[in-house]
Design a protein around this nucleic acid. Structure first.
Length: 280
DNA sequence: CAAAGCTCCTGACCGC
DNA sequence: TGCGGTCAGGAGCTTT
């Protein structure tokens, strides 16, 4: 599933295709994704120039020369595919789950495909992004300066939920998903079951750089993946990571000398993978 | 206000 | 081979 590093990689892959380009044509093949698409969605995008593509949390932002910003979320199963102008068949053939197609004035296609439709696209006034309902309660970026041990410790005070759930709360920090929270807690040696309110200052000091490091490594891996492989099938942002605990229930703990076994538990209805021996 | 529960959706997987 | 049942999962919204 696309987590923050994948979204960053998608952003970097789309930038050279769309930045500075006008949207020559926009094809909308259904009324709604996770939420309804806005009125006149395609018409409002068509003819606009993409000034810049950005990211906030796991949202892609297409900054346009018109009144709107295009907001995209890839949800669970969303993908962006680039089809170069020279590789297009005639006529265009679209897949069952190809929902939105952006054609640039260079006639490259950017296709949004999402089988489960947990993703969304919407528009928001260019000067009102921070006031938009999706963003107005959002916490700081995990890679930004505002997310630091002091902030995290203050935020965690008196909180009664497990640290795992706490870190997934987008109001606390925006863009962390299930995989990277599991990985970061493992690398920081903190139990996912620990109450957020019981987080010590030392643990906050450890956790913040670990989160940055885990995300940073994945982004760098995505960058190299993009460079090496993105041309093959045009799909952006998916690459193989070596996760230490995620998806590894039953395997032995990768910490040398630990000897524990990674287990899977459910927290807040979601899988958590961790080593009960070295995360306490 | 915080925390828990609900919801959207389909592919994958399982047992018969 | 096919079919019904079950499950996962991001994150905003609703309820407690």
């Amino acid at each position: 599933m696309p987590e923050l590093p994948e979204v960053e990689t998608v952003k970097n892959g789309l930038a050279p295709i769309v930045e500075g380009r006008r949207l020559f044509r926009v094809i909308q093949r259904r009324d709604k994704l996770r939420i309804p698409l806005p009125e006149n969605f395609a018409e409002r995008l068509q003819g606009r120039r993409v000034e810049r593509i950005g990211r906030r949390a796991k949202y892609l932002l297409f900054h346009l020369d018109g009144p709107d910003i295009l907001i995209c979320h890839l949800g669970m199963s969303g993908r962006m595919t680039v089809t170069a102008a020279g590789d297009r068949g005639a006529p265009d053939i679209f897949g069952k789950h190809d929902h939105i197609i952006l054609e640039t004035d260079a006639h490259d296609l950017v296709t949004y495909n999402d089988p489960r439709r947990f993703g969304l696209m919407t528009l928001c006034p260019a000067d009102g992004l921070d006031q938009h309902r999706l963003f107005c309660h959002m916490g700081p970026e995990p890679l930004g300066n505002e997310f630091n041990p002091g902030y995290l410790a203050t935020c965690a005070e008196n909180r009664r939920s497990p640290i795992k759930n706490f870190l997934l709360d987008q109001r606390v920090v925006a863009g962390l998903g299930n995989i990277y929270v599991c990985e970061a807690l493992f690398e920081a040696g903190i139990s996912p079951k620990k109450n957020a309110g019981d987080l010590t200052g030392d643990e906050a000091e450890k956790l913040v750089p670990v989160i940055r490091d885990v995300l940073g490594r994945a982004i760098r891996a995505g960058g190299s993946s993009l460079k090496d492989y993105a041309q093959i099938d045009g799909t952006l942002g998916y690459f193989q990571h070596q996760f230490r605990v995620y998806g590894r229930a039953g395997e032995s703990c990768p910490t040398s000398g630990c000897g524990g076994e990674i287990i899977r538990i459910i927290q807040g209805g979601r899988s958590t993978f961790y080593c009960p021996a070295c995360q306490d």
